[in-house]
Write a protein that binds this DNA or RNA. Structure first.
Lengths: 198, 198
DNA sequence: GACAGCGGAGAACGAGCGTTCTCCACGCGG
DNA sequence: CCGCGTGGAGAACGCTCGTTCTCCGCTGTC
């Protein structure tokens, strides 16, 4: 291989990292196994990423880009701005049903390394913030109150966690229905007051 | 120490396990460190728990009991059955604000070991199912439609994850407001219909 | 006081890991 | 055709970890 495709080596390393880290957890996969799966020599791996931690961070960063790209593409297919919000949950449902789905990579990575690696924590926070911003933009486009973004985000996060733990796609549908209810209530004007107590 | 307090040794082992596993992650804490922190000899540890995995499962099981006990106690302070549901989120908010809060122990354990340990996965599923059942009972007591339990559960899970990642207690308040809105909408009669599309 | 048995301290073991080093085959400038 | 440097394969290193073993002191009994 010519020296020039260190970019290709990087891609192959990240491909292998994504597949293995996501499927089995970061700590379960050694650098040697990564070398075997990617075909990139250990020497090269350490040239590209000075330590495993950086490879993990790069894996999360690239996955973040792709994940948000896929979500945005799916959502953009809806003409009606208000339908784009339920479409987020449609897309989650599709994702949850994919073979090999094992929950949210960032939540998993945070559970595994959040206490240990500041770099990973940073990636996780950045990803979640970006996702939240994405929802906020959809809420804004739909001319709904900005305060809706937080709850929608929480519903989506809860759905991801629950789908990851139970292996079911159902949380996506539940979250979508709840999101619709919240949108309708917000459209009706502001957040609810407490239920009448006496 | 008399041979009889193997129960006490068990408790001390679990105390140390809970503190260290929760704070730093399971894989970061070795059996030797656990011995140092608990004062229980390695030999005894392995008599009580044939392998680390069992100790992890026991830690999660005991924490589950205590966690749900604390939640139930807090919720029971509300007279009005409908106020017990927001009270769940009040309690979450308190929890999120505690020193050393680092997210949901079960979600973290699942992220760390879900792909590896069937025993741990089982504990996580059992805990989440129990929590969900608890919410379902509160919904039932409040004479609200059973379909509310799922969305409330998702809001709570989303809040736990988000609080764990961001370190803020705010997700609890957001989830509580959303829960109130969903309760009000359900009280008003059933789930929302999709917004008018044409 | 002698002895059997239990329990604790910590060494030992074997495996796996992240990281580095050694060695060799290959391609290129003179 | 000959050195030279680049890059790959994989051995090696040092460390940590889960688990087991060895040794020793203590205690309760005769």
């Amino acid at each position: 291989m010519s020296p020039m495709d260190s970019a290709a080596a990087r891609d192959r390393a990240l491909d292998a990292a994504e597949e293995l880290f996501y499927a089995r957890g970061v700590q379960c996969v050694g650098m040697d196994e990564l070398r075997g799966a990617s075909g990139v020599s250990l020497k090269r791996l350490y040239q590209l990423f000075p330590a495993k931690e950086q490879l993990v961070a790069a894996y999360l960063a690239r996955r973040d880009e792709r994940w948000r790209g896929r979500l945005a593409a799916h959502v953009a297919r809806q003409r009606d701005a208000r339908e784009r919000i339920p479409a987020v949950f449609d897309w989650l449902e599709e994702w949850f049903g994919e073979a090999g789905f094992r929950g949210c990579a960032w939540i998993n990575a945070h559970g595994e390394l959040g206490a240990t690696s500041a770099l990973v924590t940073e990636q996780v926070r950045a990803h979640k913030e970006a996702f939240r911003d994405c929802l906020a933009a959809l809420v804004d486009d739909a001319r709904l109150p900005a305060s809706l973004a937080g709850p929608l985000f929480l519903l989506a996060e809860g759905a991801m966690v629950t789908a990851g733990i139970t292996g079911s796609t159902r949380p996506a549908a539940e979250a979508r229905e709840a999101a619709r209810t919240l949108m309708a209530a917000a459209g009706r004007g502001g957040l609810s007051r407490p239920a009448p107590t006496a």
